[in-house]
Write a protein that binds this DNA or RNA. Structure first.
Lengths: 286, 286
DNA sequence: AAAATTCATGTAGTAAAACTACATATTCTA
DNA sequence: TAGAATATGTAGTTTTACTACATGAATTTT
């Protein structure tokens, strides 16, 4: 082991050194150049055979290229061969096959997180984490597609030992909001930022003295106006899907961020609480 | 040579099969997971030594992963390693600042989707889409952290006009499962793949004649055994968070895929149904 | 042009690596 | 606690990678 040039692309080296190679080595070089994909699965004897030369010549070639032996050549061949896949956001076409659909949908979901990562305001995240860490009571409000996000959040924070509840019933939301007070925290989740019931509940909660946080895709919207902490996510939806799918993924990722942020803040208690709930769940498993 | 799965990323395979590995194999898997760069230059005996197991165990691991032997594993490791992605999965440290936390958590979430994209079986997706498209009745079962995923799915498919319900109550799941019949479809969601109640419900549903689909991170697990269609997701969790977060993101992305897949299959009706439900919601907005 | 020298290549042998079959140990089950 | 099933290691075999050397071809020198 331990060669300095070992990370250079072997195929390129092969070509640059070609002229200085002996005839038998050139035969091997030729074969490798034409069948790189095959070579990485060949043994030295098999390759020598295919090229009509001796194993020794193959080894000599490896050394000339700067490798310690055939294994190292193969490994470096394999490394250089991978085609780095690029992920591009693409619209779904009606005649896409399953492969295409999987690719496009999942890439859109990834990009939603990537885009959100870029625009998410660090200061706002910090403010949200601080508020939640100290919360007496924590509530999540979501309707329709945002309801599962709210429940996901509830589940995460419950595990952290924070008194927490999620509502997807607008009446319950308003009722509960009116009973909040100082030190309580509400998180309203609305993709559009214009869900009337959520806005109402946030306003009521704020009036009652609670801290209001929103997660939304719309920077200037009724929901952001009604919130003191604004977590803005970004997601380019596939136009094929007229409803927000990618943004829900982004919302959940933001929940993850809050969850970890809070966890770190409450380190020690949290570790204990997680252990407790995990133990309680073991009986539910095989 | 000649294995069908050989192009899947071995590191990802390692993780999806981890739970089904023997202890000595897990030791090797751990080492590979932490030192992938080193392993591609190690001989089988050196690796066995470092892991404190026998060479035979290393070979067994290779075979479990679907390779013919250690050489093939190494080659495929090398091929998968090159991805010089700008986003790198990194563990959370206790003294990370907000910026770092946001970055690490969201990258972990993105990677979960990326990894899942790589291993998700196209054929299984197709089978799931076909079954759901024709389903008389569609049910989603999830408990704990998987419950929000089930509800998210319910929401999506309801919008597509498919009779659909999600349960996060194990009693309700079993009851409902027993009342299913031919033409009905059940989707069981379990990260670990070992949630007893979900497995029971799936078995009952299968006995009743329904098609059973699972979404899980564990390729060989009670849940996959109980399902005729297996959707395997991959997610490397941040060790800081002892519960699955990234995998839930991946699960949701798979739901998105199914949703779009089904939508395309049911093109015309779907568009109409979406219009209807959207109109019905407009009254709820400003 | 023959001898000497250098260089290219293959042969045969060796050490190590990869793999197999089996024996032993461990764990699970009844 | 016996028996079965499973997991793991041991020891032996085959294959691979590599080395040292021998042969032969090409080139140079006298």
């Amino acid at each position: 082991m331990g060669n300095e040039i070992q990370d250079a692309n072997p195929l390129i080296k092969l070509r640059t050194l070609y002229q200085s190679l002996r005839v038998s080595e050139q035969k091997v070089a030729d074969y490798i150049d034409i069948h790189p994909e095959e070579v990485i699965y060949l043994s030295i004897s098999a390759l020598a055979d295919k090229c009509g030369v001796s194993e020794a010549s193959v080894i000599r070639l490896c050394k000339v290229l700067g490798y310690d032996g055939y294994q190292e050549l193969k490994i470096n061949m394999a490394r250089s061969l991978v085609a780095p896949v690029k992920y591009i956001h693409e619209e779904i076409e009606e005649d896409d096959d399953t492969d295409k659909i999987i690719q496009k949908v999942m890439v859109a979901d990834m990009k939603a997180i990537e885009d959100t990562l870029k625009i998410l305001d660090r200061k706002e995240v910090e403010r949200a984490v601080n508020a939640i860490s100290k919360a007496r009571k924590l509530e999540f409000y979501g309707l329709g597609g945002s309801a599962p996000v709210a429940f996901d959040a509830q589940h995460k924070f419950l595990r952290h030992g924070i008194p927490c509840i999620a509502y997807n019933d607008s009446h319950m939301q308003i009722m509960s909001a009116s009973m909040l007070g100082k030190g309580d925290v509400v998180v309203g989740i609305s993709h559009s930022g214009s869900t009337k019931d959520i806005v109402d509940s946030l306003n009521i909660a704020a009036k009652a003295g609670a801290e209001t946080i929103c997660i939304t895709s719309s920077e200037k919207s009724p929901v952001t106006k009604a919130s003191s902490v604004k977590l803005i996510i970004s997601a380019r939806e596939l136009s094929y899907r007229p409803e927000p799918m990618a943004s829900r993924i982004a919302q959940l990722s933001v929940i993850d961020v809050l969850s970890v942020g809070v966890a770190i803040k409450r380190e020690r208690e949290v570790i204990n609480n997680l252990e407790k709930s995990r133990e309680a769940l073991i009986a539910k498993r095989y």
